[in-house]
Design a protein around this nucleic acid. Sequence first.
DNA 1: TTAACTGGAAAA
DNA 2: TTTCCAGTTAAC
Length: 681
Amino acid sequence: MTERTEEQFELPVLVRKQVRDARARTARARKKQAAAAEVAAVDPVARVLVDVPLAHLDRPFDYSVPAAMADTAVPGARVKVRFAGQDVDGYVLERAPSSSHTGTLAALRRVVSAEPVLSPAVAALTADVAERYAGTRSDVLRLAVPARHATTEKQPSTPADAPVSFDAAAASDAWRGHEPGAAFLRHLAEGGSPRAVWAAAPATDWPHLLAHAAAATYAGGRGALLCVPDGKDVARVDRALTAVLGEGHHVALTAEAGPARRYADFLAVSRGARRVVVGTRAAGFAPVHDLGLVAIWDDGDDLHAEPRAPYPHTRETLLLRAEREGTAVLVGGFARTVEGHYLLKTGWARELSPPREVLRARVTVSIAGASDRDLARDPHTRATRVPREVHEAIRVGLTTGPVLVQTPRVGYVASLACERCRTPARCPVCTGPLAIPAPTSPPACRWCATVAEAWSCPECGDRGLRAPVLGDARTAEELGRSFPSTLVRTSSGDTVLADVDARPAIVVATPGAEPVAEGGYATVVLLDTWLMLGRTDLRTVEEALRRWANAAALVRPGGAVVAVGDPTHPALQALVRWDLAGFAARETRERLEAHLPPASRLATITGSPGAVDDAVTLLDAPAAAEVLGPVATGADESRVVVRVPRAHGPALSKALGDLQRLRSSRKLDAVRIQVDPLSIG
DNA sequence: TTAACTGGAAAA
DNA sequence: TTTCCAGTTAAC
């Protein structure tokens, strides 16, 4: 009885002790096993980058390599490791003879595959990009290495065909009109690393020029990497590369291809079976062997800005890569960005551009200003948005070929505008945009709901408001009425046409969705340019000009471009003179005075007001840094902007990275950091 | 997820 | 002082 009571009483203690002992035994056993397990004879240590989201763990951890994995745990291989009790994915960065870690190393748990998917060059690039954008390598690696597809991995990659010899004559011919294009190509072919910012002349078949630059590099025994904004452009450059290099030398990497195809193409590159690559922004990380040239087309297109952390921009990724791998650089486009201009201004890159007489021969740009006088003379103009001379230009164009009509997207500008001078109508209370909430109601502010019954235009005093007539469908309908016997096609949103043939037709397209015409358009019309300038973003004007230039450049050589808008606007004047370089230079000067990028490096810190506040306190920013804000950006979210002169950019990135590591290790509330955000909105 | 560590409380 | 235990922290 007594014994039983005692037993019952002592049971929990006993159980606890047993559990404890059992745990200790398994721990000892595990350690013994780890120590006893045979490790690799050479380089028994693997430096592993683990895939964990914590900034302070963004460094290699050493693991012992079991003998069975000696040959498969190669640098670049995907592995599974035990990390703080969990199985996590990682990449072997390198193998080493010993570790500086004090304490016993855990063993690699499994080599997922011996395929070295993370090359030393891309691993280094990943570190550079993470550092530059104050992010983690694991985030960058998600962008750089595609998901594994085991079946695909088992297939060998077809080796490249014997390279065709470089046709220097054809290449120089293609680049004719862009000076000094021939010298640039020769330099590439000889294995040099020239760096250029290229202003393409309108009506240039730019995919072929890119293909020739890649071919020149390839002929010199090196690889080339071409990044373009979207899948449509990838397809064009893909075709151009096939035309110049033939089949079997290049791959096109896009998000559209399924996972198997994507991985197969990636492997063809990482195995060195293909050394010429074209793709969208993710391709910037493609592990091209013996990389000799990196190129980006239309670097002002915001598709080049990665929307996932740490938000790297393709141009910056490629420039970091060029620095590290010593490659040639080609930054091209019809329009020029302020960043592109900056590369020239600092002497880092040379200019490739068409001489005046080439431009004059390629295109004639004119402006149809819908002035009051025009409206009085032709009241019909206002109803159709298409001034008489534009109507005439379309008619003339249609006698010889297709006509492109670019019209702003629906919803691009939702606000009402002054009927007379077309200044966007803003709320007198909060400066928000005015709109008509219901068909019969008076205009009201979309931000603060103030009813603006007695609105008058601050620019011209007119009291009339007009709703912008917008949309490609609406425009197509109008033009269809004006040109009854003409085929009218639209390209926008979900139904984007890649190309149209050379027959006369009206092609109505929204910006960025313009199809390429066989042989080029006879005429290009840019409607409602004033609407594209109506936004208040920092880059509005630059962006509008870029979109106009991209549409205008689709004319055939000697074709006509007509823009409907204010003839005195500097952006339209730049378009008329096709002086996009001059516009970028002026824009850069203005930004310099306003301490905006690219003369300054700028970063935003966003998060809960408390977190942002103490992030600013913890931030060990360079002495020259200015902290602007915080400002409230939403419900319980605030933001500060940190700005430094460009020379202190790397120091700012470093400080922001340190801040993230510190916050992560102290388990403080996360803040989102964006270095060089595209816009601060 | 979990082993190692920390510090405070209880036992000696 | 030593031992035990729960909560915390670092993570190979």
